[in-house]
Design a protein around this nucleic acid. Structure first.
Lengths: 119, 119, 119, 119
DNA sequence: GTGGTCTAGACCACG
DNA sequence: GTGGTCTAGACCACA
């Protein structure tokens, strides 16, 4: 499920974190789904369990999952804050592109193109 | 000109790097303009000259500026690769937002809103 | 492994950089091999760790190695761009030598001589 | 005649030095030709006469030109050492390319291709 | 004066 | 232990 790349500049725990966030955003993991156990995932990815645990701790802190002692971790869904942050990033990126002289029409066209799958 | 924030997760040299990239993209600094000297900026920002130099070295490598020993550093303009990278980031972000169920109409509306200054 | 010469005009970090490039090109260091740690090499060469790190940073940027914080630096192999650059340098040098009146036969003979090891 | 590029990493005096060496090697400037005067060239290139003088001093030291007080500087031709250095560079480059697995045939073919003008 | 290199030594995040 | 960042201060080459 999660793909690690040691050449990637991001630390391992963050790649795991980002990987799960993407899967939850895309609906691959849905509310109520059980997350793989720390030990299980650590074995599968061949990395230290501490690294997994750090990623899970962060995911829980940000509201993506909830850990239940003795039962495991479960997906909560996409936190409200996430969409807001992504939209802020979208606005900032848009502002930059417009300031560089790229016409709004072109950006809108790119949205349509990228959105064909979701039409 | 450049604003540093020690609470920002990014290292200082990167904040400087990003700051100048924005200024060049926005046209505040234009081709041929002289960059502040390493020592001058270091004094102004109250940081070590080496940190400035690291930022300038990367800016030069990425094609934003040209440094001439004994003369100073000069703005080259926006590298070709930059707009492409930003557009790729835009596409990726758009795809994520659409996959979360945010309608393309809303994204398009946000572009219009942000683009009023450039209309 | 790496030999430094303070009389050499090239800065130390570049001598290190060039030294590793040669070793990777020649296959002495191969994909996946571990690079000596920054501190280790600094001690061995009796120079400052920062100088090693600068060399490693450039090697990583050019695609020769990948550095993972907390784990070490690992050889990626010869970047695609490298062979192209060397061949361009070869063409330029050849053109110069031919323009000086050195016959193509002599250059070809020199290749054969140098290539006996690889025949 | 001489083209300066401030974006070039080489210092100005070296660009001048290399420029004249190329012209002499290519036969654009021939033995006995008069070099432009320091003041004349400094005006033409819009740089400091000291920089020109440094280049001329180096050219004289390497045997490319000879300066006659009160008369000017005159081209001597290509020094013996130059061809030897270029051939050494050629051998080194060839060795590197062969060690990377590039066949000698390909290098020979490139020589033929580049030498068509001099056939 | 400029940028470029190097040293010595500190602190941090990561695994 | 690893690499990454930053500081303080030195010396050099260039223009």
């Amino acid at each position: 499920m999660i793909h690690l790349d040691h050449r990637d500049g991001r630390p391992i725990y963050q790649q795991i974190l980002d990987g799960f966030r993407e899967q939850i955003r895309a609906g691959v993991l849905m509310e109520g789904d059980r997350m793989p156990s720390v030990r299980e995932l650590a074995t599968q990815l061949a990395i230290n369990p501490n690294t997994i645990q750090r990623a899970y701790r962060e995911l829980e802190f940000q509201g993506w999952i909830a850990s239940v002692a003795g039962k495991g971790s479960f997906v909560c869904g996409v936190p409200q804050s996430d969409a807001q942050e992504l939209l802020q990033a979208f606005d900032k990126l848009t502002t930059t592109l417009l300031s560089m002289g790229i016409p709004a029409r072109e950006l809108a066209a790119r949205i349509e193109k990228g959105g064909e799958d979701h039409a």
